[in-house]
Design a protein around this nucleic acid. Structure first.
Lengths: 298, 298
DNA sequence: AAGTAGCGTTCAGTTTTCTGAACAAAGGAA
DNA sequence: TTCCTTTGTTCAGAAAACTGAACGCTACTT
């Protein structure tokens, strides 16, 4: 096929307007462009579509037949254009998001209903994952990941950045002496999240930089919620992101401990990563905004 | 609408082949062209159609929707292309031809049935006219005209070129002395076609160039058939194109006279004129060929 | 861990298309 | 018959698109 589909609207305009000058007015193109376009189409098709001189124009029989076919093409083109316009104008469709289980259960789940009310045409496909995510390979739209992700291709926006807090159950606190130096403090820590379970975890004790061993003899789990439940049930003291502690502290199920032992800022960071800032579809944009909003509220 | 319809086949190939390199192989285009074309389409639509890196490609949800619309466009494009290919390959449709009445009745009419058998999909619309023809103004495809028509725009092919012949009825010849000089000859000419009715019609008498007055005292008519019938019925001698004399001479209804008085060659010329040599539709081409053939046979 | 093949993207030079200006032609008005 | 207006066409310069070459990246192989 040697003809250009983009010549179709020009040909249709010539036929319908009855002339090249009139067609150029309607198309908003110079008449030399319109004239040359018609000539090119006729040569590519090997058909004389229009007989014309400076005063008369006559659509040939072949031109009439091709014109009707051209109208069908334009019908479909307008349909596609309208569909594309609709897609880029309002949020609809499915968002596939990979997120950590704890974050999803504790932070996102309570707000899903409200998101659905606001954006009825957007469906969520939430993929709880504990492995590293690659958007393209894993065929997901976006991901919430631990850390301030920096990637040359991806856009990263920090959702949560804050310190950890030491917590224990009231009963544990009332039956144990939580005072003392680093060694005494260390003896109370029996479980913590795996990501913090380092042999030399940097902390400040009374403002003085030091390190604490959260590796040897401390149980690890890759879920802040499980660590939290263990502590609620008497498993000593643990350091957890404040993100997951709001309700437990408010209800008194947990109490803060070791207030003189603090972590550096941003020990607990979660980011949302997605491929582009430009041409981000409306539904992705609103979901990212939604995640930012619910994290800001905590 | 800011996107190019010609980008559609490229987009469809990328989706169906699952990659830009594979699509470029199928399309026969450089991969830089394919890559740039996709990028341009996405920006024009304001939609990310395809997520991709050097190893993975994923069609977005918007891309899937637009792809289905694109398939509908391509369906119509293929339909139009096939229709155009059919039109340029075999003769069909209507030919509108303006021709002189005598020529049509005497030369063309006897062969119309045979043309219709050979080209069943071609219909003829024969316009008998005695006025000058302008193809575009009069909305006709071609015309048979008197003379070796030369026009900057039109193609002209001579159908008939030959001398006139002097004829009379046998009874006239047997009751009149047709011998003598130019003046005696002149006295027998009482009717001729208007186009030859000139005061100084060049002829050769016994090979010697001279002129004969066919204007004064000679009846004129713009039909060779009417002049012929008049002569058959005793109206003296007339000069007529051989084109119209074949049956009459063969049957003995007319006999030749003044064999020593001849006209210059090409006194009687008919040409077919049509707009173009290139891009001549098949049905016009076969009709022109048909006219040439039936004239050649006479 | 290092090397390799093949992917998609980008850039600068080449090619193609677009178009303003000028021209020839047609038809209407004077 | 002459003049004028508006048409469609053509050409040369400008603008846009194409593309070969080079590059960075990814995943597989050694």
């Amino acid at each position: 096929m040697k003809w250009k589909i983009d010549d179709i609207p020009v040909f249709v305009a010539i036929v319908e307007q009855g002339g090249i000058s009139a067609a150029s007015d309607v198309l908003g193109q110079p008449k030399s462009t319109v004239s040359t376009t018609l000539t090119r189409l006729e040569h590519a098709l090997g058909l004389r579509l229009v007989e014309r001189n400076s005063r008369n124009l006559r659509v040939t029989e072949e031109g009439e037949v091709f014109y009707r076919k051209a109208l069908l093409i334009l019908d479909q083109v307008r349909e596609a254009d309208a569909t594309a316009a609709g897609m880029s104008a309002e949020p609809s469709g499915r968002v596939v998001a990979a997120m950590p289980p704890a974050f999803t259960q504790e932070v996102v789940a309570p707000h899903i209903a409200e998101f659905q009310i606001r954006f009825p045409d957007v469906s969520l496909d939430l993929v709880l994952t504990t492995q590293g995510i690659e958007l393209l390979r894993d065929q997901v739209d976006l991901a919430v990941v631990v850390g301030p992700k920096v990637d040359s291709d991806l856009i990263s926006r920090v959702l949560v950045a804050g310190p950890l807090a030491w917590v224990t159950s009231p009963s544990y606190a009332s039956t144990h002496d939580l005072r003392g130096g680093i060694d005494q403090i260390r003896s109370h820590i029996r479980i913590c999240e795996k990501r913090y379970g380092r042999a030399r975890m940097p902390v400040r004790v009374d403002g003085v930089q030091t390190q604490i061993d959260l590796s040897t003899g401390v149980s690890h789990v890759n879920s802040p919620l499980v660590a939290r439940e263990a502590v609620v049930n008497g498993a000593g003291v643990s350091a957890l992101p404040r993100l997951y502690l709001r309700e437990s502290l408010a209800s008194g199920r947990l109490v803060e401990a070791f207030k003189n032992v603090t972590f550096d800022l941003d020990a607990s960071v979660l980011s949302v990563v997605y491929p582009h800032r430009r041409l981000l579809s409306p539904r992705l944009r609103v979901f990212v905004d939604f995640l930012e909003e619910i994290c800001r509220q905590r």
